[in-house]
Measured scan of single mutants.
Amino acid sequence: TEVDLHLGDITIKLKDVSEEIVKRAKELFKNGWSAEFVKKWIEEAVK
């Protein structure tokens, strides 16, 4: 499945990412993480 994760003005296309990771990524962004950091976190999380 593909998900578009909207973080501010940046959209990250996610492939084969669990709902849990998407939820967590949104929380991290809301908590002040930059979109770049969230993207890196996701990449690490799906390895």
Rank of each mutant, 00 (worst) to 15 (best):
H6E: 13
V46C: 06
V17W: 06
W33C: 09
S18H: 12
E44C: 15
L5M: 07
E43S: 05
K13G: 08
W41S: 00
I10V: 12
E43H: 04
G32C: 05
W41I: 02
K26E: 13
F29D: 01
F29A: 03
A45W: 11
K47H: 11
E20R: 07
A25G: 03
I21W: 03
K26R: 12
K13P: 09
N31D: 13
D16G: 15
V22L: 12
K13N: 13
E20T: 10
K40Y: 11
V22W: 06
L5V: 09
S18R: 07
K39H: 09
V38L: 04
I12K: 03
L28F: 07
E20C: 11
I42D: 00
E44A: 10
K30G: 10
E27W: 07
T11C: 08
F29V: 06
G8F: 03
S18N: 13
G8W: 03
K15R: 14
A45P: 00
E19F: 08
D4K: 06
K47V: 12
V17F: 05
F37C: 13
K23G: 08
K39I: 15
E43Q: 07
L14G: 03
V3D: 10
R24Y: 10
S18L: 11
A25N: 00
W41K: 00
I10D: 06
L7F: 10
A35Y: 08
V38D: 00
V22D: 01
F29R: 02
V38R: 00
I21E: 01
F37K: 15
W41G: 00
I10P: 02
I21Y: 03
L28R: 01
E27A: 07
L7C: 06
G32H: 03
K23D: 14
K40P: 00
G8I: 04
F37M: 15
S34K: 06
A25E: 00
K23T: 15
V3I: 14
F29H: 06
T1Q: 13
R24C: 10
S34W: 05
L14N: 02
E43R: 02
K39S: 11
E36T: 03
F37D: 15
A35I: 15
K26L: 15
V3E: 11
A35D: 05
T11M: 07
T1S: 13
L7A: 02
E27P: 00
S34M: 07
L5F: 08
K39R: 15
L5Q: 03
V46M: 15
A45K: 08
